[in-house]
Amino acid sequence: MTDVNAIYVIVMRELKKFIRERSRLISSIARPLIWLFLVGAGLSRLVSPRAGMPYTQFIFPGILGMTILFSSIFSSISIIWDKEFGFLKEILVAPVRRSSIVIGKALSGTIVSTIQAAIVLMVFPLIGVSLSAVQALLAIMISLLVAFSISCFGIVIATFYESYESFSVIMNFIVMPMFFLSGAMYPVRLLPAALRGASKLNPLTYGVDALKNAVFAVRTGLMSPDFSFAADMAFLVASSMAFVVLASVMFERKQ
C-alpha cells in the first residue's frame, strides 16, 4: 500500500510541476510546431511530391515521436536535478521499494509525454489530413507505450550522471542521434547500412514507425512505414519491459 501511495505521489509531483512551469509546457508544444512548419515546410520543396505524400505529412508521426522523446527524457533525467538539489535523498530514505520509485518516475514521464503528444495530435487537420477517432485513439495508445519505454531508458541514463552539467552531453550525444536515427525525418531504408543498423536498435524507430502505420492513409511507396505494425508493437513492448527491469536494477545498484 505504501508503494502504491509512493507511485501516486511521485506522479502527482511531476504533473503539478509540469502544469506550474508554463515555459516548459509552451516550449514543449512550440518545438514540434517549429519543426513541422519551419523545417518541414522548407524541406517539402526539395522532396518530390511523387514520393507518395507531402513531406509535412510524412514527418508528422516523427514530430509526434520527437515530442515524446524530448518530454520523456526530460522528465526522467530530472532525477539528476533531484540528485543535485538533494531531493532524491528524501525519496531514497523513504520506506518504499526502489522499483516503486522507478515505476513512479517512468509513469510520470509517460503521462506528461502523452498529454503533450495528444496536444500536438490536434494540429493534424492543419497539414491536410483527417484522422478518424479510432486512428487518433490508436496514436495515443502507441504514444503511451513509446513514452513508457523511453522514460525507462531515460532513468537508466540518469543513473550514470551526478550533475545537471551533463544535460548537454545527454542532449547532443543521446537524444539528437536517437531522433535523427528514428526514421522521423527520412525513411530508415534510405540510410547507409551502418546507420540503418543503429536505427534498428533505437526504440523510437519502432514508435515512429507504429505511428506511421496508424495514421498514414497511403502505405506504399518510398515514404511508407519501414516495418509491419506487429513488428513495431513487439519491439516496443519488449523494449519497455527490458528498460523497466534495467532501470530498476541500475537504480538499485547505483543509488
Partner: peptide, 14 residues
C-alpha cells in the same frame, strides 16, 4: 526513522 540531512533535501519548486 526521520532524517534531517546536512544539505537541504526539499523540493524548492513546491
Amino acid at each position: 526513522i526521520g532524517i534531517v540531512f546536512q544539505d537541504t533535501t526539499l523540493d524548492k519548486d513546491l
